[in-house]
Computed example of a mutant assay.
Amino acid sequence: MKLNSVAPKEGYTWIRQGIWLFKQNPLGFLMLVFMYIFAAQLAVIVPVIGVFAVLLLTPTLSAGFMTACRQAIQKERISPMVYLIALRSSALVRKRILQLGLVYAALILLMSFALSLLVDFELLIPLMTSDKAITPEALRQIYLVLFFGGLLYVPIAMLMWFSPVLIAWADMSVAQALFSSCLACWTNKAAFFLYLSIWSVILIAIPLTVGMIFDAIDLGQAASFIIAPLSMAGLTVMHCSFYATWKACFTEEEVLAS
């Protein structure tokens, strides 16, 4: 497995490649993303255990989606069972991918604890449990959550970006995968910055702008019928573009059977 260094402009190319990949099997990819979102929402209903299960299985599901991308390129049918491909692999891969899930869950727990020290969540709880109007202070806390949450998640994202695939496809240990993933992201940080900036505009800025425009003309409820499907499609294309980042940052000297 060889680590590559790419030009900053590649961040834009990854998105174009993600769009191309999505076009190879749009229904299959939309099905996988919808399944993940639906399962995650159901799991959250179960206190503590449900959230832990989602975090534990996130690397497994990530490896499964990347495998689906490879299958789409090879014109193979995408099945929901692709999500379990890492767990159905060798005992060693299964053990490592679940260990990686534990690491991810622990990192998210630490991030949540650190965030609780920086933000007053007591002001936000009423917003989630009632229909009360948002106060200026509560709005400030929401912005703080988004800012500090994003800042704290960056190192976690760097560690986890390629780790599931490096374990599933490159036969790396958990420690090796985490280190290699972080190194790859840091080596290509300029390309990733452009890549994530574009996705931030597509998935956050544009929907917010559309929502504000519809609110201004008293059509706020109608906005969801436009924003929801577009956001779903954008989120799916973004997941497809993850495969493009993998192919750009790493050269597989030997492609292992999935």
Rank of each mutant, 00 (worst) to 15 (best):
S5A: 13
A7Q: 15
E10V: 06
Y12H: 09
G18I: 07
I19N: 06
W20I: 11
Q24P: 01
G28Q: 03
F29V: 07
L30F: 00
L30R: 01
M31D: 07
Y36T: 10
A39L: 15
V51H: 09
L55M: 11
L57F: 15
T60A: 11
A63P: 14
F65W: 01
F65L: 05
A72R: 00
I73M: 12
R77Q: 13
I78N: 00
L84M: 13
A86P: 15
V93K: 03
V93R: 09
R96M: 09
I97T: 10
Q99L: 15
L102Q: 11
V103Q: 03
A105R: 02
L109G: 12
L109I: 12
L109P: 10
L110H: 08
S112V: 12
F113Y: 10
F113Q: 09
S116G: 13
E122F: 00
L124I: 00
M128A: 14
T129F: 05
D131E: 13
I134W: 03
E137G: 01
L139K: 05
Y143F: 15
L144G: 02
L146F: 06
F147R: 01
L151Q: 00
L152K: 03
I156M: 10
W161P: 13
W161R: 06
F162N: 07
V165S: 13
L166H: 12
W169V: 07
A170K: 14
A170E: 15
A170H: 15
M172L: 07
A175S: 15
L178F: 10
C182N: 14
C182E: 05
T187N: 14
N188V: 04
K189A: 09
F193L: 15
L196W: 14
V201M: 08
L203A: 04
L203G: 05
I204A: 05
I204H: 02
A205C: 05
I206M: 06
P207V: 04
P207F: 09
L208N: 01
T209C: 10
F214G: 06
D215W: 09
A216E: 04
D218G: 06
L219W: 13
I226E: 11
I227R: 01
L230I: 03
L230V: 11
A233C: 15
G234I: 03
G234L: 02
V237G: 05
M238T: 05
M238H: 12
C240K: 00
K247L: 15
C249T: 14
F250E: 07
A257D: 07
A257I: 12
